[in-house]
Design a binder for these strands. Structure first.
Length: 462
RNA sequence: GUGGCUAUAGUACAACGGCUAGUACAUCGGGUUGUGGUCCCGAUGAUCUGGGUUCGAUUCCCAGUAGCUACCCCA
């Protein structure tokens, strides 16, 4: 600390007061200025697409009642039972940091009487969510999601529209993804299916061969049996009756329609018969967005792709969603069909970084204003406002005194021109304009600054 | 929740059972008190925490914590 302390004693006092450093919490991340260009890009793309497709932005509180998530996301989901940041507040209320967005959005829909708006209500949501997980690549305890929810629309067009927007989001960010899609039916046909599934596992002693977790799943949440990664379980699951074959007529027609729309839009989807999702409220259409593995793009030879085929990168899912026709009513609203999806923004940014997609540096300016002496500084502070309001991308370092340090900063900011004002120029009514690339300087009339800059950079208004 | 790897300045890396823990980049200052990019000089700045072994540990051992990573699960 070079200039902070006038006296040694002052510094001593400061050092004694300086306490132990408290670091950030586990699994939490700071977003530093250098990284913000990625966030701006992603947020901008999400906003643009949402607006274009008629989704209007909402925010909901970070804190909600614990019960909201317990009831909606489910007692059998890991997200609620194991991973929620929940605690008792000063009022003895049991509350939680939201582990996902949909329950809060549905709550808001009901609470603000949005069923009185023209249906469907299409909502765009972006913000942080929290899960008390063990941190890992692309997984944090606080992370950001971009959600779209379409509440009040039963048509399969809504499902297809959501999937399309999701797909366009990735495609326009130059991330190669495939859509994994399945239908898990409605509570009625799923009930029939679950009976079939349970019978299947009872046959030929299959149940005994299941892994420890799957034995539990068989009782608690049999759909998840299809999703296990254990070799034996995967083998059995591949022979198990498929849920799509057991759909009732309505559900089957709905699913077929969704697929037809996707075909029409040339969406590259993959029918994924064992895809089920981790939240309890889904019905009918469920989908996830997976990054296309780099291997399959680089080496297209069959032998290289063949052994990789089964190693689907589930962990790296970039997004997911589906239909949740029962949730609004279950949460105390009128019976209302709905569907939605969520995208994990940290994972998206990870992909953008992996691909080295060049991004423009937003901090670069065009003009830098340098000053020498207090009188010049005052004048330049006023000039800065004039140029800023005229729309020029102007930079400054008013607190610096030496021209050297100001030019250093101008250089780092990559400006094309630096305007230099000192005593001499004030006396003459002029200002220097320095071309930063060539180093050539010209003296110009102070009153003609704006005209001169416009001549060199063009009129920013146009 | 289970496993693997790791832990040294802001960052990226060295080194050593013992003397002043080294280099690069970054930061700050100076060479040049009205001129940036290059160059030169200088300064600031680190062995995660707690135990153990040892005459002596930053180094070896154990535990904790954190980071990375795989699994589970999810985005």
């Amino acid at each position: 600390m070079p200039k902070m302390f006038k006296k040694k004693e002052e510094e001593k006092v400061f050092k004694v007061r300086r306490g132990k450093f408290v670091s950030r919490l586990r699994g939490m991340k700071d977003i530093l200025p250098d990284e913000y260009k990625y966030w701006n890009l992603v947020i901008k793309k999400a906003s643009e697409l949402s607006k274009a497709y008629g989704f209007r932005r909402v925010d909901t509180p970070v804190l909600e009642s614990w019960e909201l998530f317990e009831r909606s996301s489910g007692r059998s989901s890991d997200v609620v039972t194991k991973e929620m940041f929940s605690f008792i507040d000063k009022n003895n209320d049991k509350i939680a940091l939201r582990p996902e967005a949909t329950p809060g959005i549905v709550r808001a829909y009901i609470e603000h009487g949005m069923f009185n708006l023209p249906q469907p209500v299409k909502l765009f949501w972006l913000g942080p969510v929290f899960r008390h997980d063990k941190p890992q690549a692309g997984r944090f305890r606080q992370f950001s999601q971009f959600n779209l929810e379409n509440i009040g629309e039963p048509s399969p067009v809504a499902d297809a529209e959501l999937i399309a927007v999701t797909y366009y989001f990735f495609r326009e960010l130059q991330i190669d993804v495939t859509i994994q899609i399945n239908s898990i039916g409605c509570p009625l046909c799923r009930k029939d299916y679950l009976v079939k599934l349970e019978n299947f596992y009872k046959e030929r002693g299959r149940r005994v061969k299941l892994c420890h977790d799957c034995k539990k799943r068989l009782i608690k949440n049999p759909l998840r049996l299809l999703d296990c990664k254990e070799k034996l379980c995967v083998e059995m699951a591949s022979e198990a009756p498929q849920i799509v074959d057991g759909l009732c007529d309505d559900c089957r027609n709905h699913f077929i329609k969704v697929l037809e729309y996707l075909d029409e839009l040339d969406m590259p989807y993959n029918l994924h018969s064992t895809l089920v999702r981790g939240l309890d409220y889904y019905n009918r259409t469920v989908f996830e967005i997976w990054p296309t593995p780099a291997e399959s793009q680089a080496t297209k030879s069959a032998d290289a792709a063949a052994p990789k085929k089964d190693e689907l990168p589930r962990q790296a899912a970039l997004g997911g969603g589906g239909r949740y026709d029962g949730l609004v009513e279950y949460m105390g609203g009128r019976p209302t069909p709905a569907c939605g999806f969520a995208i994990g923004l940290e994972r998206v940014i990870l992909k953008i970084k992996e691909k080295n997609i060049p991004l423009q540096d937003e901090e670069k300016g065009d003009i830098f204003l340098a000053q020498l002496g207090d009188q010049a500084r005052r004048k330049i502070m006023k000039l800065f406002e004039v140029l800023r309001k005229a729309g020029f991308n102007t930079r400054q370092a008013f607190t610096k005194d030496s021209l050297k340090s100001q030019l250093e900063i101008a250089n780092k900011m990559g400006v094309k021109y630096t305007l230099i004002l000192g005593q001499k120029e004030i006396m003459d009514g002029t200002i220097l304009i320095r071309d930063m690339e060539s180093g050539i300087q010209e003296i110009i009339d102070y009153k003609k600054i704006v005209a001169e800059i416009e001549k060199r950079l063009g009129n920013p208004a146009k």
